[in-house]
């Protein structure tokens, strides 16, 4: 996984609560068997005026000029600012894949849905929870100042604004280390393979009914 340390970038204000995973990446793009290539279809139903298809040439599609991603001032943004309950809905990891593929590295919101939040960390994206009031203030500042950018430092767990204001944020220690080191989580877990095997053996003795091969269970 890509390492995360410091991200400095333009902030994209997506002023909307309960942005669900269908909003982030509509279902027709989930038919892909790859992890990449979802960026052009990020927020597809709001970014374009027509209906997107997996094999369409997105460069020829009509853009929705009102959608924030299409406004020139936010075009190269890497930090997404959103409202409550961002990423609610399905467990599709295509949502963080699409954000990542587009170039988003940090998402700031007052709250996130659990599964989405978790999926971000598996893909080198940093979701940051800030108080509602601070998020509202950031929205005001972003909208008032073209080119507004933030610097996000995961080591010190701080966000620095253009006026040098420093905002501290919390992040789970294990997740922080995984992001900083770009760890392969499966590799880390497999370091505990013996512990898992021991547990499994005991569990098999205590609850053998969970270990019967499907279709042959005790019959």
């Amino acid at each position: 996984m890509r390492k995360f340390s410091v991200v400095e970038g333009v902030v994209i204000p997506l002023n909307r609560a309960n942005v669900d995973t269908d909003f982030i990446i509509p279902k027709q793009f989930l038919k892909s068997i790859k992890r990449t290539g979802f960026g052009p279809n990020l927020f597809d139903e709001h970014r374009y005026l027509d209906k997107g298809e997996p094999d369409a040439d997105n460069s020829k599609r009509p853009l929705n000029p009102d959608f924030v991603l299409n406004q020139p001032r936010y075009r190269n943004g890497t930090i997404l600012l959103a409202r409550e309950n961002f990423g609610c809905g399905s467990s599709r990891e295509h949502a963080p894949w699409a954000l990542d593929d587009y170039g988003i590295r940090v998402i700031i919101a007052p709250s996130f849905a659990d599964i989405f939040f978790n999926n971000c960390f598996k893909n080198g994206l940093l979701p940051i929870v800030l108080e509602k009031e601070i998020v509202s203030k950031l929205f005001q500042e972003v909208e008032a100042n073209e080119g507004y950018s933030l610097s996000v430092d995961l080591t010190s767990q701080t966000i620095t604004t253009p006026s040098a204001e420093v905002i501290h944020f919390e992040v789970d220690e294990y997740k922080r280390q995984c992001l900083l080191d770009g760890l392969d989580e499966i590799g880390v877990t497999l370091q505990d393979a013996d512990t898992i095997r021991d547990f499994e053996q005991q569990w098999r003795e205590r609850a053998p009914w969970y270990f019967a091969t499907p279709g042959q269970a005790g019959n």
Binding site: R35, S91, N119, K122, T189, L190
Partner: peptide, 21 residues
């Protein structure tokens, strides 16, 4: 029972475990 992302699907396939809080 709960939903997981694809990275976790792979994690469970490979380790039969999930990292959780």
């Amino acid at each position: 029972a709960h939903g997981i992302g694809t990275s976790e699907v792979e994690h469970v396939l490979a380790t039969q475990c999930l990292l959780q809080k």
